[in-house]
């Protein structure tokens, strides 16, 4: 009955592989493809937020803070709605983290504000008594790398098809446009800050790391 198949061992092996792989294929691929679609309302990071994201990675915030809220009442009470995989569609790389020495930050933009972050990054223990988080005063003096952030966004746009410049999505445009937009966003953040040297720097067209980082943290919703 199957001699026609058994006479062709290579062909037989390929067909056998496809037959067995088919079950896995129909179970895994559709669900995976659906879950990796961006959720409605998820937008790519703006250039300033990306610069802040680089600061977040550089200072290893993800070593102590996760960005993934699990579906348990105890977590959603404290951090807000549980995370969905589509929310990370534009995160390259994602920053789920694996250990919570500090609290989760996936929706920190919903319940902390610019002024809180400003006080907290300068001296965490003064805002949260008993906090073991180190101080980050250097973020108030270091300048954020807007150029790399633009290159990052541009690469994501051209290589991975991240929808910058589409309708209702953040604008990227040329380097000059993006730089001007990032500065405009930075001014908005700085307007809510108290530190005069940071305000002066932004007024002079420089973006301190703290401004970029706060813009990023505020965008986590």
């Amino acid at each position: 009955m199957f001699h026609w198949l058994e006479q062709r061992p290579f062909f037989f092996a390929v067909m056998l592989f496809l037959t067995i792989a088919f079950a896995g294929f129909i179970e895994i691929v559709p669900d995976f493809a659906k879950a990796s679609q961006p959720t409605v309302g998820t937008k790519p990071h703006t250039v300033l937020e990306l610069a802040g994201r680089q600061v977040y990675i550089k200072d290893s915030c993800n070593a102590c803070h996760s960005q993934l809220i699990r579906p348990f009442k105890s977590e959603t009470d404290r951090y807000g709605m549980y995370s969905l995989s589509g929310e990370y569609a534009y995160d390259r790389p994602f920053l789920w983290g694996s250990k919570r020495t500090g609290p989760d930050l996936h929706r920190v933009g919903n319940y902390r504000t610019t002024d809180w972050h400003e006080n907290h990054m300068m001296a965490p223990a003064e805002v949260v008594p008993g906090s073991i988080m180190p101080k980050y005063p250097h973020m108030f003096t270091n300048t954020a790398d807007i150029a790399t952030a633009y290159a990052n966004a541009n690469t994501q746009k051209s290589l991975f098809g991240v929808p910058y410049d589409k309708e209702g999505m953040p604008k990227l445009g040329s380097w000059e446009d993006a730089k001007a937009q990032a500065l405009k966003d930075a001014k908005k953040v700085a307007a809510d800050m108290k530190n005069q040297s940071v305000k002066d720097k932004v007024a002079k067209g420089k973006v301190p790391e703290i401004v970029a980082l706060i813009a990023y943290l505020n965008s986590l919703k």
Partner: peptide, 11 residues
């Protein structure tokens, strides 16, 4: 005058 307090809607 102090700063911004976020909304706690639904929390």
């Amino acid at each position: 005058s102090i700063g911004t307090m976020p909304s706690f809607k639904g929390r």
